[in-house]
């Protein structure tokens, strides 16, 4: 009797053990609270400077060798485009987009450039089950489309609605998004194409920590000009690209309700229970089994003997 019991217990534990090996324990906990690489690069975007010329869109198109746009880049009618009640967003053919927002208090509209914000702790990265994404020490969030399975979880996870998908590709549909011009420029220490092309220097390229100081200095130096908030300093754990604005950020279409902590923090509670279930459940349920069947046959393989119990 005891022999069978022990063997069964071992069998059950082994099943649990194999499951443990698959558990996402190591990396989940190692994720800790990562605040970005110390010398990571970033971009400060000053919305007060943008005039909506769309030169950055053209520069991005050229640098990333994207397909021909539907309309010329000096066609400003795109600002009136509305899809499903929404302004334009990044697509698989346009990694950056400039939108126009009408403000409540002033006649002058506000223009906002949208692209990947290159989060310190990116939700896309942590949601990817093939680990396609990478946050480089230079600060870019890049991805390896050769391993992309196409689950599109990163699109669900991105709090800024950035990654897009080449839905119309038959054989090789993949995720597409801004990579901070990593391959062609950032790797060599050069600013991305959009930053360099901007006539108004809406964007300033530099080390994130230096730029953060400058952002606060600009707010301080120009009393009354800016809203006293750097969008992206704290949002979702901090972003590589961050914004200062003369108008409240919600009027410029920003999601001002985003958590201050990285998206992955929401998931950590759940990930923490995984190893618990994996280690405790086998013993617990085997124990239940032994208790529940105490004194009875430990029956299986001989379940015909239980046929008559059906009555109840």
């Amino acid at each position: 009797m005891s022999k069978i019991t022990r063997r069964k217990f071992l069998a059950a534990s082994a099943a649990g053990g194999t499951a443990i090996m698959m558990a996402p324990t190591k990396k989940a906990f190692a994720a800790g609270s990562f605040e970005g690489f110390p010398d990571g690069m970033g971009v400060l975007v000053d919305l007060t400077r943008c005039v909506g010329c769309r030169t950055c869109e053209a520069a991005c198109n050229k640098e990333q060798q994207l397909p021909e746009p539907a309309k010329p880049f000096d066609d400003y009618s795109v600002f009136d485009e509305i899809h499903h009640g929404q302004k334009r967003r990044t697509t698989d053919k346009a990694y950056t987009i400039v939108n126009r927002y009408e403000l409540k208090d002033t006649e002058e509209p506000l223009y906002r450039k949208i692209q990947c914000n290159h989060c310190n702790e990116p939700a896309c990265l942590t949601s990817c089950f093939v680990n396609a994404y990478k946050k480089t020490p230079e600060g870019a969030v890049i991805y390896d489309s050769h391993v992309c399975v196409g689950c599109r979880n990163c699109m669900i996870a991105c709090p800024f609605h950035i990654p897009a998908y080449t839905y119309h590709s038959v054989l090789n549909p993949v995720i597409k998004k801004c990579i901070f011009c990593y391959d062609t420029r950032l790797k060599e220490g050069k600013p991305p194409a959009c930053v360099e092309s901007c006539p108004q220097q809406v964007m300033t390229f530099g080390k994130r920590k230096d730029l953060m100081k400058i952002a606060h200095e600009r707010i301080k130096k120009n009393p009354g000009k800016y809203v006293d908030h750097v969008y992206g300093e704290k949002e979702v754990g901090g972003t590589g690209w961050f914004y200062i604005s003369n108008a409240p950020f919600e009027e410029a279409g920003f999601d001002v309700h985003l958590p201050k902590k990285p998206i992955i923090d929401n998931v950590k509670d759940f990930l923490a229970i995984v190893p618990v279930v994996l280690t405790v459940w086998p013993a617990l349920f085997t124990g239940f089994h032994l208790l529940a069947t105490k004194g009875k046959s430990h029956g299986h393989g001989d379940d015909h003997s239980h046929d008559e119990q059906g009555g109840h």
Binding site: T55, A58, K62, E68, P69, P72, F73, D74
Partner: peptide, 10 residues
């Protein structure tokens, strides 16, 4: 050419 405008318009 850069802006895809004029004779280079889509």
């Amino acid at each position: 050419k850069f802006y895809h405008s004029g004779e280079f318009a889509p």
